[in-house]
Design a protein around this nucleic acid. Structure first.
Length: 674
DNA sequence: GGTAACTGGGTTTTT
DNA sequence: CCCAGTTACC
């Protein structure tokens, strides 16, 4: 960290006013690219300069990346622990608090954290006892993942089940009774097994802060609380912030309600707008000078930006005019893929490296065709967002095996590892688990009894895995344990997966990453709270001379910027997504998402609209439909774009007669057999 | 009884 | 392309 005075020197007037504000609660309304992070870092530095102890400053963010980034800039690299700002995601800080006082929360010292996929697995095992499997009186029941989603929505928005169902899951309304019973069961299961899901982390922290005895102690740990991206808080997180700073003293929130894009996980920008009601003495400072994008890009962004009463904001450009965004109308998605490749290469020729360009998509599958085209042309790319690495089947297998080693009472983990073996289905797995009495002491010792449940051929292969896991549990270091787990899975994975070698290579990197943790348990919690985005993420930074085009979902691109940005699929149904169009709030969020996408571009913005869409349907003929240009590009927005029509695709060739057959016939005449 | 292999329908975004 | 339900096989 540099000298605080120098940090302040580098700020503009608004930023400096925010960084050095001395009154009550402060809301910094920071538009995209207005130096929000730098201002927050400067405020932390200024607070230290005012004599606030770093360890009494709490910085809350939504991603680990944002937390790491700010902490690195806000404090000296060589400072000792007592001299460090406390910072992390809401979930990570909650975990830290609960771990430190696990006995107060009636949790085992080494409680496990369920990621959303784990929660869905638990729902899956519980739901058949509630009539939520198969078709119930002709209706399809909600899937396990949907049950978990509905549960989380209720909890994170503090909304009654009936209201959540009516607003977001109307087709599940008939199952309200069964879902209520399932959720009660779900909570019981978690408590019995000492498990905590993502929502629980926040709920438990909030409960502690609200407790008359524990609350003052926890809140008294900090003099200043800085919250990044406040528009993304859910009801529970808003409560946590309020409980941390009940009178608003020492509270700084940074946010932009026009960039709220996480409603689907319970966030609501209404909490940001409600701040002035919570704190009568709230001061709002606007940051609107944009240091990221060219004027030509911002003109479009300002038209798209939704404005909300009392929090209006328009960005002004600090970086010169630049070129107008180019809207490329394409005949279809294949043309769009070719157009993107052509423009990526043209920009590359003109001196913009591939890694300085990004293709941002609404949904991970929007780039499928493009990825094929890129591969065909040999253009390297990396993709962020979409399916997470930890959701790949083999990674889940490895994590389950690791969980057995870390905690042999983990029911779900046993279930998964046993089922990995060919010939073991749900029933046999359950029997083995019951015989092992995994909740009791020394479950591994009961394997000889459990193997009686299996045919002898299976008993041998499964037995080998179980014995190796038992040995792994006795190894001293995390690295050795991880290696032993990998060895235990070698046989069953080889039998299960055709591409086992590739998957094993992934897992070796995972094992290497886990080896850095003090314990296997810590490694698992880290992976749950901060899953690697891709396998390549684990391998550390790519070599410097490697150059990749970035493909990312808009959600994953939040907070980032690139000199050149390409936005494909700008047609109604894709952008905005038709899943979001059932409610007015959903449509508004899609508009904010589009605003976030547009404001990622520094110099050049390319927009692509394929007007003929292809629908994949097995069994039926391929179908096409003509799409509407996205409704967000209305006349006012289009006035700030340059429009071109992409070259039409090659003409369709429909020969009157089969061509190959006619050639064959001609040739056959040469041998005289025609 | 239990598991694997097949078939048909639906598909967002992520701490 | 993944998941859930159905069928066919051990």
């Amino acid at each position: 960290m540099t000298d605080p005075a120098a940090v302040l020197e580098a700020l503009n007037d608004d930023q400096r006013r925010a960084a050095t504000y001395t009154g009550g609660p402060l809301l910094i309304l920071a538009g995209a690219g207005t130096g929000k992070t730098g201002t927050l870092v400067a405020r932390a530095a200024w607070l230290r300069g005012q004599g606030v102890q770093p360890s009494r400053i709490l910085l809350l963010t939504f991603t680990r990346r944002a937390a790491d980034d700010m902490l690195a800039r806000a404090q000296p690299a060589d400072g000792n622990a007592a001299d460090r700002i406390v910072g992390g995601t809401f979930h990570a800080i909650a975990h830290r608090v609960i771990r430190a006082y696990s006995e107060a929360f009636a949790l085992p010292a080494e409680f496990s954290v369920l990621d959303p996929a784990d929660s869905a697995d638990v729902m899956d095992t519980l739901r058949d006892s509630h009539g939520l499997v198969g078709t119930d009186s002709g209706r399809r029941t909600p899937r396990a993942a949907t049950c978990a989603e509905i549960y989380s929505r209720c909890v994170s928005t503090s909304t009654a089940l009936a209201d959540v169902l009516r607003a977001g899951y109307p087709w599940c309304v008939p199952f309200a009774g069964q879902l209520a019973a399932l959720f009660t069961d779900f909570i019981g299961y978690k408590r019995r097994h000492g498990l905590v899901d993502f929502d629980d982390l926040l709920l438990l922290w909030r409960a502690a802060l609200a407790d008359p005895a524990a609350g003052p102690a926890l809140r008294g740990l900090f003099d200043a609380v800085l919250v990044d991206e406040y528009q993304d808080v859910n009801a529970v997180q808003a409560d946590i912030v309020r409980l941390l700073r009940p009178d608003g003293a020492g509270l700084t929130c940074v946010g932009d309600d026009a960039q709220a894009i996480y409603a689907f996980r319970g966030a609501d920008p209404a909490h940001l707008r409600a701040l002035s009601g919570t704190y009568a003495d709230l001061t709002v400072i606007r940051l609107s000078r944009n240091y990221r994008s060219r004027h030509a890009v911002l003109r479009l962004a300002n038209v798209i930006r939704p404005q909300y009463d009392g929090l209006e904001l328009a960005l002004t450009a600090e970086r010169g005019h630049g070129q107008r965004p180019l809207l490329v109308r394409c005949h279809d998605e294949a043309t769009q893929a070719r157009e993107i490749c052509a423009r990526v290469l043209a920009e590359h020729e003109a001196g913009t490296r591939l890694c300085e360009q990004a293709v941002l998509v609404r949904s991970a599958n929007h780039s499928d065709l493009l990825e094929l085209e890129l591969a065909g042309r040999g253009i390297p790319s990396v993709k962020y967002g979409g399916l997470r690495f930890t959701e790949a089947a083999h990674v889940k297998d490895f994590l389950a095996a690791a969980r057995i080693v870390a905690n042999p009472a983990d029911d779900l983990a046993w279930f998964r590892v046993l089922r990995l073996h060919e010939g073991i289905g749900p029933v046999l797995a359950r029997r083995v688990i019951d015989t092992l009495q995994i909740a009791g002491p020394q479950p591994f010792a009961r394997w000889p009894a459990a193997e009686q449940e299996l045919p002898s051929r299976l008993a041998t292969t499964v037995g080998a895995t179980v014995r190796q896991l038992a040995l792994a549990a006795d190894l001293p270091s995390t690295a050795e344990r991880a290696a032993a787990i990998l060895a235990a899975l070698h046989e069953p994975m080889g039998a299960r997966y055709a591409d086992a070698a590739i998957r094993r290579a992934d897992l070796e990197r995972l094992a290497d990453a886990a080896a850095g943790s003090p314990s296997l348990h810590d490694a698992l919690v880290q992976l749950a709270l901060d899953p690697p985005v891709s396998a390549s993420d684990l391998a550390g930074r790519p070599r410097l001379d490697d150059d990749y085009l970035v493909i990312s979902t808009v959600h994953s691109a939040k907070g980032l910027e690139w000199p050149v940005v390409h936005l494909p699929q700008l047609v109604d149904g894709a952008v905005p997504s038709d899943m979001a169009l059932t409610t007015a709030a959903g449509l508004e969020e899609e508009q904010r998402l589009f605003y976030v996408a547009v404001t990622r571009a520094r110099d050049r913005l390319f927009l692509y609209a394929p007007l003929r869409m292809h629908h994949h349907r097995r069994g039926a003929d391929d179908r096409h439909s003509y799409a509407q240009l996205t409704r967000f590009l209305d006349a006012a927005a289009l006035a700030h774009c340059e429009l071109i029509q992409a070259a039409p695709p090659r003409p369709v060739l429909v020969p009157a007669a089969p061509l190959a057959a006619s050639v064959d016939r001609d040739l056959a005449s040469l041998w005289g057999t025609g």
